[in-house]
C-alpha cells in the first residue's frame, strides 16, 4: 500500500514534528516539580500559621470576655466608670471588634461554571480580588455601616488581595463562593444592580458566566473582627 503524499520525506518530517510538539508541548507540566514542592510547603506552613491564628483568636476572645465581665462588675462601686465604658464600647463598635446586626444586603459572587476555551485566559472566568474590592467600595459609598466577606469583618486595616488561587482578607484565605453581607440602607440593592456601576464585573457576568446576585434582607449579622490592630508607628 502506498502512503502517497504522507509518505514523502518532508511531510514525514513535519508530521513527526507535530507529533513531538503534541507529545511534549501539550503534556509538559505547567509547574516544575520543584515549584510544586515549594507550593506544597507554602500551603503546609500557611495551614500551621492559620491553626495558630485560630488558637490565638480564641484565647484573645476568652480574655476579652473575662475582662469585660470584671469591668462591668466594677462599674457600680467605681464613680464615673460607666461613661468611660460606654465610650469604649462605641469605639469598639467603630473598630469592628463587636458583632452587629441589622437590615442590609447579601451579595454572592462565584466563579463561572463554564470552562475556558482553549487559549483563553482562565482568570476571565474567576472572581478576582478587584471584583470584591469594587463591590465593597460601592457598599461603603452607598452608606453601608458594617461589611463582612465570608465571615471576615472589614476593618480599617483590611486589605483584599489574591494569593495562590485564593483571595485573602484579614490574613484569612477565602474560597468561592464569596458572600458579602452588609448592614445599611435598602438603596444598597438598587445601587449594586445599577447598570452603570460595577461595569467590569457585570461584563464578566454577561460574557463569561460569572455569578453575581444581590438580595435585600430584613436582617443580617456581621461578625466581629477577631484580629489585632498594629499601632507600633502611630502616635496620638
Amino acid at each position: 500500500m502506498s502512503l502517497g503524499f504522507f509518505g514523502r520525506p518532508p511531510v514525514l518530517l513535519a508530521l513527526s514534528l507535530i507529533g513531538l510538539a503534541l507529545a511534549t508541548g501539550y503534556r509538559l507540566p505547567t509547574q516544575s516539580l520543584e515549584t510544586a514542592r515549594d507550593a506544597g510547603d507554602v500551603s503546609a506552613v500557611a495551614a500551621q500559621l492559620e491553626a495558630e491564628q485560630r488558637r490565638l483568636q480564641n484565647r484573645l476572645g476568652e480574655l476579652q470576655a473575662e475582662r469585660d465581665r470584671l469591668r462591668s462588675r466594677a462599674q457600680g462601686p467605681q464613680e464615673g466608670l460607666s461613661g468611660l465604658l460606654a465610650e469604649l464600647i462605641s469605639q469598639q463598635v467603630l473598630a469592628g471588634t463587636v458583632g452587629l446586626t441589622g437590615p442590609g444586603v447579601v451579595v454572592v459572587l462565584d466563579d463561572s461554571p463554564r470552562r475556558p476555551l482553549r487559549g483563553e485566559d482562565p482568570t476571565l472566568y474567576l472572581v478576582l480580588d478587584s471584583h470584591l474590592r469594587d463591590v465593597v467600595n460601592l457598599l461603603w459609598q452607598g452608606g453601608a455601616e458594617a461589611v463582612a466577606i465570608n465571615g471576615e469583618r472589614l476593618v480599617v486595616s483590611s486589605s483584599i488581595y489574591a494569593a495562590g488561587g485564593t483571595i485573602v482578607v484579614n490574613a484569612a484565605r477565602l474560597a468561592p463562593p464569596y458572600e458579602i453581607v452588609a448592614i445599611g440602607p435598602p438603596e444598597l440593592e438598587t445601587l449594586l444592580k445599577a447598570p452603570d456601576r460595577l461595569t467590569q464585573l457585570k461584563a464578566r457576568v454577561q460574557n463569561y458566566g460569572l455569578q453575581f446576585t444581590v438580595r435585600r434582607v430584613p436582617e443580617v449579622t456581621v461578625p466581629p473582627y477577631k484580629g489585632g490592630f498594629a499601632t507600633e508607628h502611630l502616635r496620638w
Partner: peptide, 18 residues
C-alpha cells in the same frame, strides 16, 4: 510565589498582632 510570600508574611504579622 510572590503572593505566597505575601500571604505568609501577612499570617505571621496577624499572629504577632494577636
Amino acid at each position: 510565589q510572590l503572593s505566597d510570600a505575601r500571604l505568609l508574611a501577612d499570617l505571621i504579622e496577624a499572629n504577632n498582632r494577636l
